[in-house]
Amino acid sequence: MQSLENELKECARKLLTEKKVDLIIGYKKGALPLRSTPCFIREEKDVDSLIFDFTCSNNLATYLQKSKLAEHRTPNTENHGKIGIIAKACDARAIVQLIVEKQVKKEDITLIGIACTGILDLKKVSDGLDGKEILNYKLQNGEVLFQGKDFKKPLKLSDILCDVCKTCLNPDPSVYDSFIGEPISGAKTEIVDKLEGLSPDERWEYFEREISKCIRCYACRNACPLCYCEECVVDRTNPQWFGKSTEFSDTFTFHITRMLDTAGRCVGCGACIRACPTHVDLAPLGIKIEKEIKERFGYTAGLSLDVIPPMATFDEDDKQEFIM
């Protein structure tokens, strides 16, 4: 049986040589041992650099946003043409959501779904190795053997995957043009609220601690495929809704507003969490909102092309137990 990466390369090569796509957006090896990096491939000779493994942390759907696509016009193409994009199940759902919201035309995209068993959480890896620098690693038998300048240490794979990956409810893309690998169905678990069982005061303390780390770099917002507003509310200065400093309530308001604006559209890919340079963990916020949306409105983002996002519509019989 062909390895995942070889299958991927063949698929990409075929699409390019048969001129079904003009551009392939995928992952290639990054400059550091545990990092991959997005790559844009227009020529068949570059297809061999494509990889796919647990370091593929970015949600490539973000590059399909109109504003980002507009930036990638090269001198010899009028527009970006047809795009083949490599997508884990969560990324695929983001693409479907973008199509539903009319940001991207389905005919312009070739969605190459790929089987994903989870992405590494680099903070967990660093914690497990006491912050030491990693020079090499090897995956074998559910363990990853990390090697540095003067150490060798195995960590269990299940201990170092992202929380959102470990509780992934939709590991197989429901809409795709090609699929690489074997479907993963059966790996469903319930979304776990990390802060469940804590009192409101304890939850507030958790968020206080996390928000204080934020440096307002907006890596989270820019990494998110669904954050595509031409002018973000946090950037407006006339009127200015939020302060731009690192003052606590301003920073918290930014994050809450971003979560509310992506309510019912967030696919829980975790790209925002992984993009953060100071490891602010706001995943519980996003997860809570999507859980509420699923309970109240029976909707999960990106599973079907034939829906209206829940916050853009209503039902006369919506529950209103909280209204006097």
Binding site: P38, T74, A219, A223, A275
Partner: peptide, 17 residues
């Protein structure tokens, strides 16, 4: 410059740190 900048997300992680 196209080749260098294609993947940049225009956040401020590099500048702030």
């Amino acid at each position: 410059w196209d080749e260098i900048a294609y993947k940049c997300l225009s956040c401020a992680a590099c500048s702030y740190l």
